[in-house]
Design a protein around this nucleic acid. Sequence first.
RNA 1: GCUCGGGUGGCGGAAUUGGUAGACGCGUUGGACUUAAAAUCCAAUGGGCAGUAAUGCCCGUGCGGGUUCAAGUCCCGCCCCGAGUACCA
Length: 937
Amino acid sequence: MKDFPAIDRKWQKYWAENKTFKADNHSDKPKMYVLDMFPYPSGAGLHVGHPLGYIASDIYARYKRHLGYNVLHPMGYDSFGLPAEQYAVQTGQHPAITTEQNIRRYREQMDRIGLSFDWDREIRTSDLKYYKWTQWIFLQLFKHWYNKKTDRAEPIEKLIEIFEREGNAGVEAHANEDTPVFTAEQWRRMSEKEKNEMLLKYRLTYLAETEVNWCPALGTVLANDEVVNGVSERGGHPVYKKKMRQWIMRITAYAERLHRDLDKLQWSDSLKEMQRNWIGRSEGAMITFPLKNFDDNIEVFTTRPDTLFGVTFMVLAPEHPLVEKITAPGRREQVEKYVEAAKRKSELERMAESKEKTGEFTGAYVLHPFTGKEIPVWISDYVLAGYGTGAIMAVPAGDQRDWEFARAMNIPIINIFEEQDIEKGANENKDAVLINSDFLNGLQAKEAIPRMIAELEKRKLGKRKIQYKLRDAVFSRQRYWGEPFPMYYKDGVPYPIPEKHLPLELPEVEDYKPTPDGRPPLGNARIWAWDEANEKVVDKALIDHKTVFPLELNTMPGWAGSSWYFNRYMDPWNDREPFSQEAVNYWRKVDLYFGGSEHATGHLIYSRFWQKFLYDIGLVPEPEYSVKLINQGMILGTSAFAHRVEGTNTFVSAGLKDQYKTHPVHVDVNMVDEHNALDIEAFRNWRDDLKNAEFITEDDGKFYVTREVEKMSKSKFNVVNPDDIVEQYGADTLRLYEMFLGPIQIAKPWNTAGLKGVYNFVKKFRKLYYDDQGRFRLTDREPDADELRILHGTIRKVRTDIENFDYNTAISAMMIAVNELTARKTDKRAILEPLIVLIAPFAPHLAEELWELAGHQPSVCRAPYPEWDEKYLQSATKEYPVSFNGKMRFKITLPADASKDEIEQAVLAHERTAKYLGGKQPRKIIVVPGRIVNIVV
RNA sequence: GCUCGGGUGGCGGAAUUGGUAGACGCGUUGGACUUAAAAUCCAAUGGGCAGUAAUGCCCGUGCGGGUUCAAGUCCCGCCCCGAGUACCA
């Protein structure tokens, strides 16, 4: 018998040479698209946690191939990214080289696990042939606008036509807030520059001076999902608000559809909920408050228009554009000081101080739209500039934050709720009955809100409004290692490079750092200007020339390439379009997507947005590319700790540590055995400072460590490398064990000791096919009823479990079957051959080996799963509901072909029946043809 | 704080959605084989009580109530853990 690693190598080589997993774009078989989120190839390589999702999807893909599907199961690399660039800054090595090395390592590790990818379709986002089309899609976004009337993206030419015909008054678009109204005549009189600037306010990707998350340490802006708790997700550096001219994606145009279509998705509740929260849809009203002594109004958004009569003050965000204009001369100094201070604070500081409410009175007043009463206008940083209008109507009786502010600033509070004590806090309960509220008196929020909105709309004081938390996504990064924007600037206005000249290739630079004057790294590129007349990239020294213009210096963010890659896999060789209509109409969408939930508010929302855009412009046939998604949970590390006696170089074993004052030290898990005993010699040699360490051992002379579950990471010395496992036990054992650990959706700790169980199973499984002399042997004898029951019961269980991704219980079922068949010394082909196919998705290497030994063509891909169903139907078990006097009481499980007598006997024997009848004999037991058992008492 | 998950042996986890709780695996204990160890195989393994024994009984799914012939599963009220989010008006 060959050892397992030898079998692995044999079949991995076979699959690669025969392109066993090549998917065809033309097939009569039903199609199945199984996709993993592609990885960023980092320098550290894969640890045992990474392949979890790949193994899970691989099992599904292989299983579906057995069932006769044409399976598309591709893999690639999200290969633009920060680490390669940071490495380049330090060493001067081109990021492409680092990336190439890392990819090679990833590929090697994936191959060793026996993953059935169609490598002919491999894509890399940093590949010229790929990012050509990322740039192309960017240009399409630039060339489209969002028409609210048709609720979809439309070509910008159509908008220009409308402008020329009738101006923009009748246009309902998702456009910038500050877009002025103009007539057709005004439009025609605009200069080219003015026209372009106007159109920019409508385009789905636009250039705008906006407040962005600026991270000085990384030298770049960050999208909202890249800022976590006020610091950068990568590196944890402080993040500040800063105004910059940036490319922005108008994702808010799709907010409603992104929200609405979540209902169509078979994602986990938590994932959908995360996206819902991120989109943050809330229904309410826009209300206009006229300013006293000014021509302007203050507009606010509120979800509680019913509390309008409780307003006692207004609050503007410090950044609100009206602040400067309306501040009274006597208040100017304090207000300016407050605004300055707010600007200087980092996100983190602003959050840290969130407990205490601060603010300043502007000296201005608005008039209450119904009562006409004067209401003071304040500024405070508890109102966010980026949400709603950046201004609120404050109702201290109904909103806790307003209540706190009112208390802090000594502003009066009007109670507008019946029988509610608002001495200690606001009443946010919507069931409270309104008082002091004119025509709303006596109503609850449920009726009062629509009443108030109707009244506001009637009097033209406000209107119904749906507000989203989702903001337009900043798309510019001040980095080198990303897709260049195919844009150049003429007269300060952006122009696209003609599509036929794509890709705009990333230029060489001498230095990957930003330029000395603070421009992005592409500022270091010499050949980086666009010659409009000759339509080519030229030396930027020529920029003085009339037809040569500067190119964009920013690059696209990491999520650009990952927002459409799933479509590219369908037709990755295409160099005339991103993918052919034929291919995309055949594969349509991803049938099953595997990935981590950490992408909920990043990749998974941006890619849905791009898919909807591509759908609008007729490039893809589905508005959602991934209806079914499985989130695999993380595999955690089990860290080991030795306990050092404080102030000494003496370590004390776990059982004795309570007798000393100690602190824990991470120990490399590879130096600890499965009983938690430490290899003291290895530990001493691990680091210089441990050479002379002393050890207080336990009575058995051993030194024990303590264990704790943490994230798997190099710095915690708890990383387990899949290569080591594969080398020792074979790939099949690793695959089975990762799946056996628990449900794939749940985070669970890795424990190498448990491997033994599945390794035994793999060995036992193989042993079934060999006689006592170690010869492969299958006989053609007829199987008996027991053997058939075991086989088909297992087939049923494993099949339903795979369909539900309950791989751990599927493996349990196979373990039971193998134990039972071993006990019976089964050697029949009719039983053991189907079993090979059953285990093949989990343990493909062993399955191939046995399948070949059994005399079949290699590659179990064409094994006849469906044929077995009939046999299964004959021998499977069924559930029989049992009722007492017609009322259903319980169910018994028996073979599907059980006779009437057998069922009667089973019911009588059933312990619970006897219990329920209290020892009485049933008058009669009726077994009805519909397989319902009725007991007449 | 809010939202969504989840609490089952020493451990990872099962339980066909209201029907014999603890499948399967690890670990542990005992046994077989062996000069010995490893490997392998067999048996036991939630807790308690009674019995020489086969076996029988009681208690047990975070806590307290409830519905039901029957609750890990459903309802009400708590406690704890995890994830996301954070002054979103």
